[in-house]
Amino acid sequence: MMDILQIFLSDSFWAASLRIATPLIFGVLGALLCERSGVLNLGIEGIFVVGAMMGWLVAYLTGSLWLGVIAAALSGGLFGLFHAILTVPLGLSQHVSGLGITMFATALMSFAYRTIFPQVATPPRIEPFRALDIPVLSDLPFLGPVLFQQTALTWLALLMVGLVWYLMDRTALGVAIKAVGDNPDAVNAQGLSVMRLRIGAVVAGSALMALGGAFLTMSAFDAFFFGMVNGRGWICIALVIFASWQPRKALLGALLFGMFDALQVRLQTMAGAIVPGQVFLMVPYVLSIIALIIAARKADYPRALLKPWFKGQR
């Protein structure tokens, strides 16, 4: 019991929670933006792979991490545009299109990797984002390691939470996005374009998802591996329901999942001899499902989610 308390008091546990949460923060915000406009984006898992691969590749080729981040966002946005064109003006099934994007993107990235690096056994490494070193702040006890020794991408994720919150709650554009996800007829009748709003939201949301992938290769690790996204996209789809499509709750959900994950690693080392490690690996997912059951009962789905809209149809 004391050991568990010890975990919660250690700064390394909280720092790890935030680190693990970072890609999820990007992903949930991205999914939130798409779904608020009425489009489910199950391409998220593949777009994570795109962000991871393209960010790392461009950083490797140019030597600039930030160029890599931009490349990740742009290529993620491009796959988002693909999904948006299929689901918004063409009105195809969002489930089928999204899953298709995931499979296509994942396969394309593997193909590109094999084509560009045909002979390597281990992927070439890049110099990843380093932990920030802010005078005074980084040296604070507890808060220093937890908050101020994170990498720039973690801070970018936190900044995005504020930005998306401000967009959705304080700008006319955010109001229009929320409206188009609730009742596209309302938006159309007020002279705004349903198509443009939805396509824009899906592209921007997909760019955010790709940043989550970029974090994996450019901050958490230093190279691209197959299977490294490992279901994080799917977790985001669940977390966005937990967050009830609100940016601040999205942050909370991502942090909770990060905590569970950080906790299970530490529990494994503590009790690994008694209980099989797989049980602990399960913990974050089981706890997420439980949290989801509790939160989703009150979930307030965007009413037009999954429903294609066509102009002038009766």
Binding site: D182, N183, D185
Partner: peptide, 10 residues
């Protein structure tokens, strides 16, 4: 409109 064009979440 007969069927209101209102966004209920706003």
């Amino acid at each position: 409109h007969q069927h209101f064009t209102l966004a209920e979440n706003l």
